[in-house]
Write a protein that binds this DNA or RNA. Structure first.
Length: 170
DNA sequence: TAGGCCATCTGGTCCT
DNA sequence: AGGACCAGATGGCCTA
């Protein structure tokens, strides 16, 4: 199990260690600039600055609350990833797809399905005026825009190759 | 042991 | 003003 870090961990520092609220805020650009030079001192520059205890407490409370919200947000995101995993057919069922694998596979799966639908519905024919969505014309145009002249067979090949490579763990 | 993946914390920015 | 979103940092776990 991963260690649960809390603000309490951060607050429980030696006396000479600055606590939350005693750091000078850097602008994002400065932050990034600093990142290039020194990884150890990322982001925060310690400046000893006395703050009223109630302010520190308030800051800590707010931090805890937003940490909790962020955790919930990430959990929701992970649930969505899990839901996506469950609808993408893939071979390596015994091993969970990573996030990047899930997204990549999903994208190619969608392309494959789109191509298949277009083929089945003769979507490759020019859409009739006024009935473009029903005939698949819009879909075809969208698909063509993003996939050029890829045939569905090509998509299918691409998709199965990818599934295969994931199965082999490459 | 190195590298990949992930969860969590954090501060800045955007949005309502 | 406050919450959502984002990206960087950090450290733990797992596998080759």
């Amino acid at each position: 199990m991963r260690k649960q870090r809390t603000v309490a961990d951060a607050v429980d520092l030696p006396d000479d260690e600055p606590t939350a609220g005693q750091f000078e805020v850097l602008k994002r650009s400065d932050y990034k600039e600093k990142a290039k030079g020194n990884v150890k001192e990322m982001g925060r520059v310690a400046v000893k600055r006395k703050k009223h205890p109630s302010k520190v407490k308030e800051h800590t409370t707010r931090r805890l609350e937003s940490n909790e919200r962020e955790r919930q947000r990430m959990h929701k995101l992970n649930n969505a990833f899990q839901a996506l995993r469950e609808v993408i057919p893939h071979v390596r069922a015994e091993k969970k797809l990573s996030k990047i694998e899930t997204l990549t596979l999903a994208k190619n799966y969608i392309n494959t399905l789109t191509a298949t639908v277009l083929n089945l519905s003769n979507g490759f024919l020019p859409a009739k005026e006024g009935n473009s969505s029903a005939s698949g014309g819009k879909l075809y145009k969208h698909y063509q825009k993003h996939n050029g002249d890829d045939e569905s067979d090509e998509q299918l090949k691409k998709y199965s190759t990818q599934i295969h490579s994931f199965r082999q763990g490459s």
